[in-house]
Structure formats: C-alpha cells, structure tokens
Amino acid sequence: MSVGLEHYLIVSAALFSLGLLGVIMRRNLLVIYMSLELMLNAANLALVAFSRFNNNLDGQLMVFFIITVAAAEVAVGLALIVALYRKRQSAHVEDLVSMKL
C-alpha cells in the first residue's frame, strides 16, 4: 500500500497528541512552550499534506503564514518568560499560582 493522505494525517495526529501530552504533563514553562511548537508543527504537516493531495497550493501558503506568526509568538512568549523569571526567580508553573506579581 503506497503512502497517501491518511498516513500523513495519522502522523500529524500522533504528533499533536504528543504536544498536548507535553503541555499537560511537564511543569517547566520552557518545555511547555516547546510542546506548543510541536502542536503547531503537527498542524503544519496536516496542512501541507492536504495541499499536496488536493492539488491546491493554498495550504502551503497557510503554513507560510503560520511559521511567521509562530516565530513572532515565540519571541514574545520567551520575553514574557524572562520578565516573569526576573520577578519570581522561577520558571515552574507550580510556583506561579497567583495573579499578582
């Protein structure tokens, strides 16, 4: 059986689940952030596969935009984490339970 759309979608689903597992299970803000990147990448893979097997380039353009927005998001999020660490001396979600700094 040759590799088709289904195979790519299953890989994408598995990768998305792994990312979600990381977000739920890990307690370090940076690792949670990396798991978020994993989930974004899973969505990218599904979009590229759809684009390939529907003979339409719009999916790839969408991925192009997603990569750009993800880069901006990572920059802002990491700056927030650094600012938070300066205030609280911790990047551990269990230490960050109050809304007041």
Partner: peptide, 12 residues
C-alpha cells in the same frame, strides 16, 4: 475515509 486523495500535481 479520506482515502489517498487526488493524484498529486503541484510542486511547492
């Protein structure tokens, strides 16, 4: 049942 999709044509 998405199947294998169309026969791929475009190159990105």
């Amino acid at each position: 049942g998405v199947g294998a999709g169309l026969q791929p044509g475009y190159v990105g």
